[in-house]
């Protein structure tokens, strides 16, 4: 019996709140990267064209694709950053254990992914309106969204970002476990891609991309991201529990 009964979930909540305030600086990089993505999207995110007997045509796409991809990279890097020593040692200001610290980190990454996913949608409107007013648009076709499409798209964006955050988190934890992983993981990753591409018919990257990108069932897509993210985060949790308290 103690004077103050402490529940694990209360500490997670407190740490999560603390981390929201303490890791606030990662959002400045979100703004910078998002503005860069808008700059890159400004000339169109895709184009097509052709000529036939009677018609010559060209069209430009203005979509959120580049912004979303940049946000995935941002989430990956942010997840790595919060596993670094400077951030980890902050946790010891609290009564905590490894699991609690990790869970609050994961909750923070989830919140950051949600914020990033929402701003991807909003910043797409910013760049589309900039492109509308400042570029010579011969004629414009706007594909609008129904509420369901909007909701599904928003959740999909958030899940893609969270997936990358989970991968970044595992990478960060592995690097914290041993600095050698900083070299080993990129070598395996890029080496694997190069070996895969040597035959002239790369399948690894295509298959991984298609596993998520070609999924047409929304529910199945959620399950896939949830399962893969859980595996990545559980692995991070397992590894971090084996680490020394202050390493």
């Amino acid at each position: 019996m103690y004077l103050a009964e402490v529940k694990a979930w209360d500490i997670v909540r407190k740490q999560y709140r603390y981390k929201l305030k303490s890791y606030f600086s990662v959002f400045t990089s979100l703004i910078v990267i998002q503005l860069l993505a808008i700059l890159f999207s400004f000339n169109g995110t895709g184009m097509g064209g052709g000529t036939s007997n009677s018609i010559s045509y060209e069209f430009y796409y203005y979509t959120s694709d580049i912004i979303l991809v940049f946000m995935m990279i941002w989430a990956f890097i942010t997840a790595i950053i919060i596993t670094t020593r400077a951030y980890r040692y902050d946790d010891f200001s609290f009564v905590t254990n490894r699991t609690i610290s990790q869970v609050s980190n994961i909750l923070f990454l989830l919140s950051a992914s949600i914020f990033a996913g929402i701003t991807v949608y909003l910043s797409t409107h910013l760049f589309q309106i900039l492109a509308f007013y400042f570029k010579d648009n011969y004629s414009i076709i706007v594909d609008s969204l129904s509420f369901t499409e909007f909701l599904m798209g928003m959740i999909t964006s958030i899940l893609y970002i969270f997936l990358f955050a989970s991968a970044g988190y595992l990478f960060g934890i592995l690097v914290q476990l041993h600095k050698g992983f900083l070299l080993i993981i990129p070598t395996i990753l890029f080496g694997g891609l190069i070996l895969d591409g040597i035959g002239g018919n790369p399948t690894l990257f295509v298959n991984v991309t298609n596993f998520f990108g070609e999924e047409t069932s929304f529910i199945l897509f959620i399950c896939k991201v949830a399962i893969v993210s859980s595996i990545l985060l559980l692995a991070s949790l397992g590894i971090s529990n084996r680490m020394e308290v202050r390493k």
Binding site: F59, Y60, Y62, T63, V120, A131, S139
Partner: peptide, 9 residues
């Protein structure tokens, strides 16, 4: 024909 298509991602 030239046109810009504003589409979601």
């Amino acid at each position: 024909v030239s046109f810009s298509r504003f589409s979601p991602g």
